[in-house]
């Protein structure tokens, strides 16, 4: 618990130090959120939820990569590897923190929507199960991104590209049926796309897509395991050849 609290405090101080950047990021998010809601994007009841999912995924990708990349360059990463707590545990706590912070940010944006443009918040208890499964998948995604950044810090340059590809190909903003066939096929195994599909089914059509939720849980666990395998492999390789601190 002390380790988790220490990590939370450090992340909070990081947010405080770079607050201007986080505020401008929230403003940018608001523009994208309202722009898509009022413009060419999705006008369904579930839109705000699918946007929240994307924002959480985006948050974990960018924070997982940027903080590890910075730590590699400043040398603090090696210090973390020399502590009596495993780096994987630190990354896990960090992911949880950043997911919480991203949730706080996006809820704030959604609340602005409720207060200003009369955004309606539709909800169903089954969404909690979808959200929890997605949380598991995002932990896995966090491990994958952090591991790749351990291998090469340059990953940090591509995170916003990955993020926006996810926004437009997961079936939230652009409907799944309008996407190229290959992406539709990939979306059968992509947890964000599955979570969006399940949420649309629950909120927009009032259904309980059991098979979709089971597939989402299964895929999420696979993502988590894949993340752990990739992390272990890259960590072991780092032990063999040393972590490359160059950017």
């Amino acid at each position: 618990m002390r380790i988790f609290l220490a990590e939370c405090k450090r992340c909070s101080l990081e947010i405080k130090a770079y607050s201007a950047s986080y505020i401008s990021e929230m403003m940018m998010t608001s523009i994208v959120f309202f722009g898509l809601m009022k413009g060419l994007g999705d006008h369904s009841k579930s839109y705000y939820l699918t946007f929240i999912y994307w924002y959480l995924a985006s948050g974990i990708i960018s924070n997982g990569s940027i903080s590890t990349s910075q730590e590699k360059q400043t040398g603090t990463l090696q210090q973390l590897l020399l502590k009596p707590v495993s780096f994987l545990k630190i990354v896990t706590y960090r992911n949880i923190y950043w997911l919480g912070f991203s949730l706080f940010q996006i809820v704030f944006v959604v609340l602005i929507g409720v207060l200003t443009v009369d955004l309606k918040l539709y909800f169903d208890i089954k969404i909690l199960l979808v959200g929890f499964s997605l949380f598991i998948a995002l932990q896995g995604l966090g491990y994958i991104i952090t591991s790749m950044t351990l291998k090469t810090a340059k990953i940090g340059n591509f995170v916003s590209i990955i993020s926006y590809i996810l926004l437009f190909t997961s079936g939230g903003v652009v409907s799944n049926s309008s996407l190229p066939k290959i992406i539709q096929w990939i979306n059968n195994f992509q947890p964000l796309a599955l979570a969006i599909k399940a949420t649309k089914s629950i909120i927009d059509y009032g259904k309980t897509p059991t098979d979709l939720i089971i597939r989402l849980i299964f895929v999420s666990v696979i993502y988590l395991m894949l993340g752990l395998i990739i992390y272990t492999k890259i960590y072991k390789s780092g032990k063999k050849y040393g972590i490359d601190n160059n950017y």
């Binding site: 002390r2 220490a6 405090k9 990081e14 009596p84 630190i90």
Partner: peptide, 15 residues
């Protein structure tokens, strides 16, 4: 970006 004391709190927390 954090103070000397906060660096100590962080690393001490990890211990």
């Amino acid at each position: 970006y954090i103070s000397a004391m906060d660096n100590l709190y962080y690393y001490g927390g990890l211990l």
